[in-house]
Design a protein around this nucleic acid. Sequence first.
DNA 1: CCTTATCCGTGCGCTACCGCACATATTAAT
DNA 2: ATTAATATGTGCGGTAGCGCACGGATAAGG
Lengths: 257, 257
Amino acid sequence: MPHVSRVDCSKLKNQEPTQNAFLNALPEPIQQRLFPHMELVEMPLGAVLYEAGEVMRHVYFPTNCIVSLLYVMENGSQAEISVVGNDGFVGMSLLMGGESTTSRGIVQSHGYAYRIVGSRMKTEFNLHGDLLDLALRYAQALITQMAQTAVCNRHHSIEQQLCRWLLLSLDRLKDNHLVMTQELIANMLGVRREGVTEAAGRLHAKGVIDYSRGRIEITDRPKLEAICCECYSVVKSETDRLLPYCPHKINNLAKPI
Amino acid sequence: MPHVSRVDCSKLKNQEPTQNAFLNALPEPIQQRLFPHMELVEMPLGAVLYEAGEVMRHVYFPTNCIVSLLYVMENGSQAEISVVGNDGFVGMSLLMGGESTTSRGIVQSHGYAYRIVGSRMKTEFNLHGDLLDLALRYAQALITQMAQTAVCNRHHSIEQQLCRWLLLSLDRLKDNHLVMTQELIANMLGVRREGVTEAAGRLHAKGVIDYSRGRIEITDRPKLEAICCECYSVVKSETDRLLPYCPHKINNLAKPI
DNA sequence: CCTTATCCGTGCGCTACCGCACATATTAAT
DNA sequence: ATTAATATGTGCGGTAGCGCACGGATAAGG
């Protein structure tokens, strides 16, 4: 099982806390209080940030990685609940008071994140300033994503769900390709691997994506959005409304290594 | 379309704000600040508390009614996201800062609720006292419910989902029967009415429920829980963990009229 | 270069659920 | 009592997705 590990010479990686949109949106005084306690960590594919029911030690702020919050059922099958990228953070339950959740957090796309010990984050949270306000709005954005996931699971085809998933992931990577096997996508969506293969094949036939062995490239994004169900745009526009700090406007974005 | 309407002689209805577990759990000083601004309202079946995207005017605290938060798709089909009864309140987005949500709130089971103008609730919320803490924990409980709804939609049969839905509803009614047509249940679950008919038929054959024309009675609750998927117990135990104020311990429960 | 592991394609029978159509039963309205 | 409205039962063809079992293709390692 891959592990999250510290990175020593952070400068070399061109990483800055402000590459996370949430951190970037915080007023300077708060940044100055928090950033000294942040440590840069590498987030390898498959790393488990926390298990269901486990008290979380850290809050993670992705810069260029993606983390899936997913639920694992008794029989082992999974379902993704929501996705976190450089738009937000992992560890909401620490702030909400529950300390743990019924889902687990897993790195879905390799990259980096800054993390801070939970209690320090909580301390700032308890000052009831801008961090509280922003975190609450982000919580609502997460809720929107979960709700839409429930809807999409109920009503839409695997192909449509794949489109939604691709778009949500790409928005958090600021890139037109992602490194991800169909097997893993199937785990996220909670469907068969073969189902993803078929859907991907159809998307390829339509000229929307290219892929091979764990790499997917979007060749026609407008078409992808057209094929996708409404679920993506609902989440997207609601997130933009709730978090007007515009993660996509951060200019010193982390580049994949 | 049924409307929420004020109730004048509240005493006659045996209604008290403390019949809502969330309100009951608040410390007395907060109760004394809030309760004078609460008004008792009747909540008829089908009443719409708020529409998607609409800024909510009030926060509702059910005493003996049930409210569904559900998403309506572009094509009109629906999916229930979560359920609120006397364990919590409707209007979280007002406190979170978003003011509106992408879902709508609809009365699923007739009864009463206390409501308060959103701004007053927000004022107390902004004092950053116990109300904030409790509301955040309740928010996490709601999140858990949404997440589990997504999982259940993905992996479980209509029969299992019906069991989950029945159990969640009954917990909020403190009763062994509920007034609800199969058509409405189908809308909540986002499935065909016929699917609910079949599932209900099977549950009846197993001796778990009795029903006729809009009334469902649970005759063997332990068996119902046994048939149900894990989703119910996950939500239940997590909610109990997060909200130890024990809604079921309120003794002056509102009785159906 | 050859083996091995990983990833993707494909076919097949099966089941749950869908959409539709229509029959029946119960309550409500005149 | 008759009609209307509502609620539930049932049947049927169609299909999306599942579980399974392969077979081929591509990368990785000695």
